[in-house]
């Protein structure tokens, strides 16, 4: 065989072409959205439906930002996500430490009880949760989202941290104990720094799931000033049917934080979101 033929076969032009076609399928709808967020209706519908905007209309963004509750939704999303990340990580790191390192009765039972949560789809407990939130008067405050979001992330986060804590040699605690450190001190100054990579992973995971969460928000929040972005966005649908540009601008703004996070830390985000396959399997 000629060398060029070997090279051609190795480079497999057909399969490369197909991969790039799927890449376009995957990204172009998003580009199209960004494009039309910068156009007016005439350009979207008639003159230039596919390409980049000929004269970008950035005023679509200011229209969207000022005339609707976008800033409020944004702030709510930020608050809810931040509080969820903090709460879920603190609680699950503590639980996982006790389950992986300390010695107590029912340790395995407690751990398995926590693991069961992985197999409970959110949808199944929506109804009683809505009733519960109403009965304890949390409904219609941001806490009615933060508290369930934390609880829902616990099973998974404890499992990941548990796996990390198990890999640390017990000599560390022995020497800390000999040196007279308390258990709290050992946890705080010795164990936490060691699991820092796992904490970083879980911050990304919990943040993304809280930022994008939809069904719980739909059921637990009805006040306009408490809506998060995924929920608030939904109700533009009716108001904005006539102004595609502004709608596109709102959608682009709502996606920006997670897309940027992904573009800058792509490998971290991928491994954070797929860390489940290693532990759930």
């Amino acid at each position: 065989m000629h060398t060029w033929m070997i090279r051609l076969r190795r480079q497999a032009p057909l399969s490369q072409l197909l991969m790039w076609i799927y890449a376009v399928l995957s990204v172009y709808p998003l580009l199209w959205m960004v494009f039309y967020s910068l156009k007016d209706n005439n350009e979207i519908f008639v003159t230039n439906p596919f390409g980049p905007p000929l004269s970008p209309r950035f005023e679509n963004y200011s229209t969207a930002w000022h005339s609707f509750q976008v800033p409020v939704y944004f702030l709510n999303s930020v608050l809810v996500s931040a509080a969820t990340v903090a709460g879920a990580i603190v609680l699950s790191v503590m639980f996982a430490y006790a389950a992986a390192r300390m010695r107590w009765r029912f340790r395995e039972t407690a751990r398995m009880y926590m693991v069961v949560g992985l197999f409970i789809p959110v949808q199944v407990i929506l109804l009683p949760l809505a009733v519960l939130m109403r009965d304890i008067h949390l409904a219609n405050s941001l806490l009615s989202l933060i508290v369930p979001y934390i609880a829902f992330n616990l099973s998974f986060a404890t499992l990941v941290f548990y796996g990390f804590f198990r890999t640390i040699p017990f000599e560390l605690e022995e020497s800390a104990c000999m040196d007279g450190a308390s258990i709290y001190r050992t946890f705080w100054s010795i164990m936490l720094p060691i699991v820092r990579p796992a904490i970083a992973t879980m911050i990304i995971f919990v943040f993304l799931s809280a930022w994008n969460e939809f069904p719980l928000a739909l059921i637990l929040i009805s006040k306009e000033e408490l809506k998060t972005l995924p929920l608030g966005l939904l109700f533009f649908q009716g108001q904005f049917t006539t102004d595609w540009g502004a709608m596109g601008a709102v959608m682009t703004m709502a996606s920006l934080p997670t897309v940027l996070l992904y573009v800058f830390f792509s490998e971290k985000v991928e491994s954070a979101l797929t860390v489940g396959s290693a532990v759930k399997g």
Partner: peptide
């Protein structure tokens, strides 16, 4: 490592929240 008070401090917040928000509604 068998310090009971410490175990309680570490596990109770997570266990309580999980029981009330995830497990109890499932039974409901």
């Amino acid at each position: 490592l068998g310090n009971r008070a410490a175990v309680a401090v570490f596990i109770l917040p997570a266990l309580l929240l999980y029981s009330v928000i995830v497990f109890w509604p499932l039974l409901q």
